[in-house]
Every structure is written in C-alpha cells, then in structure tokens.
Design a protein around this nucleic acid. Structure first.
Length: 452
RNA sequence: UCCUGAGUAGCUCAGUGGUAGAGCGGGUGACUGUUAAUCACUAGGUCGUAGGUUCGAAACCUACCUCAGGAGCCA
C-alpha cells in the first residue's frame, strides 16, 4: 500500500510500512512530526515519531528531502488538517539529504525547477503534472482501443519528409563532413531522418485495417523558442478509412472531450491543485469544454469574422493568408470563448496530401483551436484521387518515385480517409493550465538544450 | 531566427552614481499535538561576463552570455 491508499483508508490499520521522502519536519522535545510523500498522491501523510521509537536517534539527521522507511500504525489524527496519521513503531533513515538540497518547503518558480529537472518530480506541481501525463496517456489508448482502433508503431527513423512539417534531424553514422559524402555509404544507404509525423505510414495501415492510431515521439529541428514548441514531443495521430472531413472533425471533438472528462474524473486532486496554484479558471473551463459542443467555422467565415471584429490586428487578415496566433486567440478566446474547429483552408497554404474541395480553391484541412493554447489539432481528409494527388505532388516539387508507396494507396483500391495530429504536450497544457510545454514533458529538448 | 524584458545570498526579490539589503531557506538554541509552526541568534554575495565613462559603478554606455515572455514555424 502507498500513501494514497492510507489517506483513503476506511479503517485504522496496524503494522503498516510507509516509504517516501520527507517534505517537512516539525520537532517537539519528545517527538517529531514528519510529512512523508511517496508520489502516489499530491497529499503526503503525517507521521508521528516518539522518542521511545527505535531509530529516533536518526531524526536530527532527517531533513527535508531525506528518504525514510517507517513502520507503524495508521490511526485517526487528533490534530486538525488530516483524518489519518501514522504513529511510528520503528524509524529508519534510508538516505540523508544535505543542506544544499535545492528544494525548500516553500514554493519555487517553474523556471528554477526546470534547471533541476531531475529533482522536480519531488515537487507538488510536477508530481501532479506527471501523474496527469500518465493517466491521460492511458486514456488516449483506452479511447481508441474501445472503438477498435489499431495502434500502429510507425517508424522513428524515416527517409520521407512529411512535407511542410518543419525541419528534420538527420540520422547518420557517417563521420566528418556528411554533406560531402555519398548518402549511399550511410547506414541505411540513403539519407534518413527522425520522423516529423507518422501520418503517411499510418495511412497505409488505415487503408487495410480501417481505423488506426499512432502515439509516439516526434522530432522537429525547427529553431523555435516558444512556450508551445519542443524539438522532441509526443504526437497522437488517428487515421480513419471511409471517413470524410466531417467524420474527422467529429472524432477530434469527441477525443478532446473524452480527454477532458478523463482528467476531471481521474485526476481530480491534481486538477484542483492546478486550479488553485496555476490557473484559477481551469476547472470551470474544463467543465464547460466537457459538456458543451464545440464551434465549427469555415476558414472563409473565420476570415470574415476577423475582418468584421472591429479589432486591429498586427497582421492583416485576407483570404489566402495563414491565420496568425492573434487571430486564433481572438476566435477562441474572445469571439466564441470555446474550442472552435476551422476548416476548408485555401489550398496554397496547406500540404499536398489534403483533399481538394470542389470549389478548387480550398482543401479539407481542419484546425481545432482551444483557448490558451491555440492550435491543438491539425488534420484533414486525404486526397484519395490518384490523378489529383499526383498533380499536387508535382506542384510541390516532390520526387514521385520516393512517394510511390504512398500513391499506391490510391492506385490500388483507394478509399476516402481522414485523420489528424494532436500534440500530446499541448493537450496536457490545456488540461493542466500549465503555460510552458517544458513543464509537461519530463526532460524537455529545445534548441540548445538536451540536458539530463 | 527576430522583438521585448530580466540577470544582486541556496530561492524570491528590493536597492537607479557615494559603506551591498529583506523575506524565505540553512546552522545554533528555545518552545510547542505540530502542520508553509513560532521566537531569538547566526553564517552566507567577484551584484551574469568583459571592456568603457566617472574622483567613485550593482546602478550609466558597448559587446557578449544566460534565462523568460512575445513573434514566426507548427502539434
């Protein structure tokens, strides 16, 4: 049993063992109070160690951060502030914690804790963040598995650039100036990279297994320094055969709502903590998202709404331009005050694989925007017509031979299909209110940073 | 990569041209069924780095480094 179980115990218990780290110690003359946390929950448990307890002589050396093993009994607490406490019958100091331990009893800034990322799992904030991450990771699989989606492990090393998805990390075993050497001499006998998306490979499985999803690491060598970007992040990419854009949007909205519901239902204590210390409006916002339908708006309507907003934007809005952060923020945070899916973007600003609409000027792209984050999901119905796809690839200067396996999906038994990509860390930011992506991933990889 | 801001004690910060400070944390002691305990005492700093201006620089100027926020790119 762990501390979480003791805190929720229905009865007093004899002969229990508590192993964990000391958060704080309060000494009396003849006994000490310890608050012990083992990571199983936000709350720790209070332990009372009387001077008669074997091991009491180790208490002076037991400071904040020390690891301990306590044998004792769980009893109702006579003090205020907790239902249960542990009366030690034996105290064992496992590991001392010298006074240069950087974590104090008081709060620290996330920036400082980032610099000691190896110790931050011991804090309330990051304990909560990474418990949430784990629960939601499980909820992702549960959501898709319960609907008979097949989980596909798409390759990490790839030779294909999923067009337009940012800079790639080169993977090579060559030494010296690699650009001056023939790629044929490299390990894979061609230029290879870390994946920027599993979408193209996922499509091959969707066009065979029906509904599939990927959930794995993704790498972008983009030199971007923002609160929403990491060079290594985890992406969820469902891909569905016999599905059009509407079905894609339906699934995206259903997915986001299910994740919000999972967080509310399964991480209540941690969410309450975020609501108190990170984002006062979090719970209210999540409840609203879980219960109300999302807005949908075509790109053209969005552009018109922005034009008629009466607001002056730093970047002017016109049909044909990408929506800027300020535009997305206005739509989701001011105009609609809820998540909104914008669809049917101009074809010029979107990748080759998106299906051309009958108007011949827009494609079936969709972006799901949420308050506070901006773009959470990007997806589309894929171009299933071979001739149109080939034409697009030519327009985008792609080497048709490199993508023959991809166009084969249209050559042999093509079907309409659609999918989307969702940055897992952005979802966690949305669910926790945590403002910086570096605080929802265990060890952030960003330009100039690969510590730990 | 661009723009803006910030680097002063372990942490959070005050100090805007004239003897480096506070709170918290650490140490010591006292006290108490305590709970971000309380009280007293105490240690702790090449003021990011390098130049420059000045009788005198933590402060003003220049460059660089680091961090943060914003932008672009995107998920």
């Amino acid at each position: 049993m762990r501390i979480k179980d003791f805190l929720h115990s229905a009865t007093a218990l004899n002969n229990i063992s508590v192993k964990g780290w000391v958060r704080t110690k309060r000494d009396s003359k003849k006994f000490s109070f310890l608050e012990i946390n083992d990571g199983s929950s936000l709350k720790g448990i209070q332990v009372v160690v009387d001077e008669s307890v074997p091991g009491y002589d180790q208490l002076p050396a037991t400071s904040t951060g020390a690891s301990v093993n306590i044998t004792g009994k769980l009893v109702e607490s006579p003090g205020q502030g907790q239902q249960w406490e542990v009366h030690a019958t034996e105290f064992q100091l496992l590991g001392t914690c010298p006074d240069d331990y950087p974590l104090q009893k008081k709060g620290h800034s996330p920036e400082f804790l980032r610099s000691i990322a190896h110790l931050r799992p011991r804090t309330n904030l990051f304990g909560a963040a990474f418990r949430l991450r784990s629960r939601i990771s499980y909820a992702v699989h549960r959501f898709f598995q319960e609907q008979d989606f097949v989980h596909v492990h798409t390759p990490i090393i790839t030779a294909s650039d999923c067009e337009g998805a940012g800079e790639l990390f080169r993977v090579t075993t060559l030494h010296g100036d690699i650009d001056k050497q023939s790629a044929e001499k490299d390990f894979f006998a061609k230029k290879t990279f870390l994946t920027v998306s599993g979408q193209l490979e996922a499509e091959t499985f969707a066009c065979g297994l029906g509904n599939v999803y990927t959930f794995g690491p993704t790498f972008r060598a983009e030199n971007s320094n923002t609160t929403r970007h990491a060079a290594e992040f985890w992406m969820i990419e469902p891909e569905m055969a016999f599905t059009d854009l509407q079905g894609d949007i339906d699934m995206a909205e259903k997915f986001v709502q299910a994740m919000v519901r999972a967080a509310l239902d399964e991480c209540g204590e941690d969410l309450a903590f975020f609501n108190q210390f990170v984002d006062k409006g979090l719970l209210q916002r999540l409840e609203a998202v879980a219960n109300a339908p999302f807005e949908r708006m075509s790109y053209e309507d969005a552009v018109n709404a922005l034009k008629n907003s009466g607001k002056t934007f730093d970047h002017p809005v016109e049909f044909g331009v990408n929506l800027q952060s300020e535009h997305e923020r206005y739509l989701t945070e001011e105009l609609l005050k809820c998540p909104v899916t914008v669809f049917n973007y101009p074809k010029e600003i979107k990748p080759f694989y998106m299906r051309l609409n009958d108007d011949n000027r827009t494609v079936t792209a969709m972006d799901l925007l949420v308050p506070g984050i901006g773009e959470l999901i990007g997806g589309s119905q894929r171009e299933e017509r071979l001739d149109v796809l080939i034409g697009n690839m030519k327009k985008h200067d792609l080497n048709l031979a490199d993508y023959s396996w991809y166009s084969d999906l249209r050559k042999y038994g093509t079907v309409e299909h659609a999918g989307f990509g969702l940055g897992f860390e952005r979802l966690l930011m949305f669910l926790s209110g945590i403002q910086n992506i570096r605080d929802v991933i265990p060890f952030a990889r960003t330009p100039g940073h690969a510590e730990f």
